[in-house]
């Protein structure tokens, strides 16, 4: 099975975003990372969590968004299963090649683990500082016409584009 086109995926995601707005609260992901950390540390050092100024805002409780995040993992698993069955072959190589006319270039190559770890560190640190990530700021915040989200999106591309071009030439 080929990957969905951008308009099919975008329409589906827009409908889901509206569904979230109307049923409980708008989509957002990144708060669940500190939430998970708070829950984990709370098992061994609850007094440290209680004393931390940030974890006084992001309390160690299981909430709607944490369940959303668990659901994302399950949804990714289900979609990959359906894709593999449709292809009749294990692995994700076929799905990778189907993405776009330019899929077979540097972007898809596996990169060093330290780079992925550092990238993960920066996306969550940056998202928590800014108060949202691609979901909370770009999809939800731009739908809300929030001035903050336009600044965030502009900064993501202002730094991300030269960074990606540099990596494409030098490292990856």
């Amino acid at each position: 099975m080929r990957e969905w086109s951008w308009w099919k995926g975008g329409t589906a995601l827009g409908l889901l975003s509206a569904f979230a707005f109307l049923t409980y609260k708008p989509l957002g992901v990144s708060t669940s990372y500190p939430r998970a950390v708070a829950l984990a540390i709370n098992l061994v050092a609850p007094e440290w969590v209680a004393a931390n100024a940030y974890f006084q805002q992001v309390l160690p409780v299981v909430d709607w968004q944490l369940m959303l995040v668990v659901g994302i993992v399950i949804g990714g698993f289900l979609a990959a299963r359906v894709q593999r069955r449709a292809q009749g072959a294990p692995g994700t190589a076929g799905e990778a090649a189907a993405c776009s006319p330019v899929a077979a270039d540097a972007g898809d190559r596996p990169r060093p683990r330290w780079m992925m770890f550092l990238g993960g560190f920066l996306i969550i640190f940056g998202a928590r500082l800014a108060g949202g990530c691609t979901s909370g700021h770009v999809i939800t915040g731009m739908t809300q016409l929030a001035v903050a989200s336009f600044i965030f999106a502009a900064m993501v591309f202002a730094v991300g584009i030269p960074m990606a071009r540099y990596l494409n030439r030098k490292v990856v």
Binding site: V29, G126, A130, G131, F152, G160
Partner: peptide, 19 residues
């Protein structure tokens, strides 16, 4: 927002993923 968006952009390019 400026600092967080910039860090996110750098991490986005390094990781190739968002949260």
């Amino acid at each position: 927002l400026i600092a967080g968006g910039g860090l996110f952009g750098a991490g986005f390019a390094l990781a190739g993923y968002c949260p």
